[in-house]
Amino acid sequence: MSAAEPDATLGEPIIEVDSLVRHFGKQTVLNGVSFKVHAGDTFVIMGGSGCGKSTLLRHLIGTEKPTSGSIKIFGQEITGMKADALQKLRGRYGMLFQSGALLQSLTVAENVALPLVEHTPLDAGLIDTVVKMKLEQVGLTGHGHKKPSEISGGMKKRAALARALALDPPLVFSDEPTAGLDPIMTAVVDELTQRLTQKIGATVVVVTHDMNSVFRIGTRIIMLGTGANQGRIIAQGTPEEIRADPDPAVQQFINGDPDGDGVDDTGELLYRDMLLRKL
């Protein structure tokens, strides 16, 4: 099989990103990012702090506009999309924010019910049942009546996941779903994510720097670089391909080494030289 031929094991492309560039002032945060996410994938975007992975996700959900490049979701170009059309498209995906982003003025159950109340003709009784089901799935049975301020960070995240899944969307974005969770809750959230793709056939895009999660749930992975490779994809492929990647920056990230190309220590060396010269 030649490289240009599409891989027969992949589903149809759900997200197609081509040459995405984003500048903030003089700073280039995304620098020519291109990739495709296929149906049924759990697509992981990983990379160090400040590599632009959250910014990339914001472009995918359409809350940030790129400097140049193209983003197609379900085959529709979203970069120049009108508000109305974007609104319609947004009904087809769910998003789990890093902080949860639950509405503080509503209870947990009302938060989960919100997309159902807004976008479906279901009556209150049915919505109530769906909400209970979703809360049960994320292990929050009996916490529905509480306000977000009354529950822990991990519970907020799971409630937000329940809200993102309320409409059973075919595409789910997830920003650091396991950050700040204990190992057991991390496994629970990972399992939920896996269940989404395996049982419901959803496509999931996850931004994370938790290596356990990456290899537990990822079916395709891209890694964004920092420093000189800021905003570029420095590695992509299946979990096996990423593990076997010869790039030292990738290996350093996977193994969590403090020294290596992935850490910018030029400043430290400079100061050391200055000190030595003064002695």
Binding site: T63, M95, F97, L103, P115, E118
Partner: peptide, 12 residues
């Protein structure tokens, strides 16, 4: 706290 962004993404 990203709540406004969340509303936008939920198409509200």
């Amino acid at each position: 706290s990203e709540e406004i962004e969340a509303l936008e993404v939920m198409a509200i």
